[in-house]
Amino acid sequence: MDMKKIIKMREMSNNQKGVIKKVSASGDIGRRVREMGLVQETPIQIQGRAPLKDPVAVKIRDYVLTLRNNEADHIMVEVDE
């Protein structure tokens, strides 16, 4: 069986897939990311990063969402080891 581990979204590499396990952001950021569909058990895939490695683009629910690295820190993702 594949081993799973939970990491921050920022730490994911390009094209890596994973499933959101926790969104710890609150306030404005928490609201924004949730209404855009970043909630528990949602599968995501890292699409790429901006030229200065920030923000990050994520494929989620059939569309591409971008968010800054410090926002991605609040999102814990389960990925294959």
Binding site: I29, V33, M36, Y63, V64, T66, L67
Partner: peptide, 10 residues
């Protein structure tokens, strides 16, 4: 700073 949570539309 406000969050940069933005859609990249197709």
């Amino acid at each position: 700073k406000t969050p940069f949570v933005m859609e990249l539309p197709p």
